[in-house]
Computed example of a mutant assay.
Amino acid sequence: MSPDASPRSVDAVLFDTFGTVVDWRSGVAAAVAEFAQQHGFDADPGEFALRWRARYQPAMRAVRLGEREFVDLDVLHRENLLATAEELGIALDRVDDAEIDRLNRAWHRLDAWPDAIAGLTRLKRHFIIGPLSNGHTALLTNMAKHAGLPWDVIIGSDLTRAYKPDPEAYLRTAAILDLPPERVMLCAAHDEDLAAAQRAGLRTAFIPRPQEHGPAQRADPEPGGSWDVVARDVPDLAARLLDG
């Protein structure tokens, strides 16, 4: 732990959500499998989930660069869903829009990693906790209800009008909480997210999620930066912040 990252050096511990708090790959793959079975599509659910997710950052990049107006993640996810299906030769033209929308909202119905809720519950007794995510408020609220995430506050990207790693995503979140950036910590399993948060003046904590992308994962197997805290999981983060 950084000498400056004492239990009282921050007021809020916020979390990247997709991959850090919830297991998006398993949840999305399960929804794809159900959808494919219902409609008689031949699809590898895990591969579909990975390809769908691979379009996530490129889709947000157009918003960050000002090439299109801000739209929320449901819009981007639906566009990416249709593009992924086309890429894999899956014709959705005969599928009702409502059923496509339900599949798209699989991102609202993701389960937490097994360690997450216990660790968040302990942190909640001492810090403001919430997501610092590219998800919008409705998505993150639905996810919290589905997974039982005990957030104090949910500040979606529709409120900050910025997508990470745009510095405004971090700075506007801190401002909404009426906190200076250095009193806010971001916990994430992704070095790129933490590096951007650190440049914006936030404290940082890394926890590994080696199964986020499945058995073939290569990204972020261990911390790749000088973060304030490196923990095994969310309960270990709570212990390091609170027990020293």
Rank of each mutant, 00 (worst) to 15 (best):
G40I: 07
S26P: 00
E168W: 01
K164A: 10
Q198P: 02
V22N: 13
S133D: 00
A239E: 15
P3I: 11
P58N: 09
A31F: 05
A197D: 10
A195Q: 14
D166W: 00
L81T: 08
A231L: 08
V21W: 04
V22G: 12
A205I: 03
E69G: 13
D115Q: 08
R125M: 04
R78W: 02
D220K: 05
G27L: 14
G89Y: 13
D193M: 00
M185R: 03
L120E: 13
M60G: 12
R8F: 15
L65V: 04
E79G: 14
D16A: 08
L149S: 06
I117F: 02
H39D: 10
A188F: 04
L103N: 08
I117N: 11
H108D: 13
D233W: 12
L110G: 01
E86K: 12
A29Y: 06
D115M: 12
D97M: 07
E182M: 01
A197K: 00
W151D: 06
M1H: 10
V32H: 04
G27H: 13
D220C: 07
L139A: 05
E87G: 12
G225L: 11
R51A: 10
D228Q: 04
A174H: 10
A144K: 08
P114G: 05
D72Y: 02
P7H: 09
A106W: 10
P181I: 07
R51T: 05
V71R: 15
A219Y: 10
D42P: 00
D4H: 14
D96N: 05
P223D: 04
L73D: 05
W107S: 04
S9M: 01
E79S: 09
A91S: 15
D193S: 08
A59Q: 14
H146R: 09
D236H: 12
H39G: 06
E182S: 13
E47F: 11
E222V: 11
I129G: 09
L82W: 02
A112L: 00
V184G: 01
D228K: 02
D111I: 05
A197I: 07
F18M: 13
A118S: 14
E47P: 01
D166P: 00
S26D: 12
H77W: 01
V32G: 07
I117G: 04
S226C: 05
D115K: 03
A238S: 13
L81V: 10
P180L: 06
A238I: 05
V28Y: 03
P210Q: 08
E69W: 00
F41H: 14
E86F: 00
F35D: 09
R64F: 04
E182W: 07
L103K: 08
H213L: 14
D44W: 05
A33M: 07
K145G: 05
A85G: 08
P235F: 08
S133H: 04
E87P: 01
P150S: 11
A30Y: 03
D152H: 15
A162R: 12
P131M: 06
A200R: 02
I207M: 10
A116D: 03
T20Y: 11
I155N: 03
R122H: 07
T121F: 01
A238R: 13
A98R: 14
N104M: 02
F15I: 07
L179G: 00
W151T: 03
L186R: 01
R8N: 15
D72R: 12
Q217F: 04
H136K: 03
G19R: 12
W24H: 03
W227N: 00
P208A: 14
A36W: 06
A36G: 11
P58E: 09
R94Y: 05
L159M: 14
L103T: 09
R102P: 00
H108R: 15
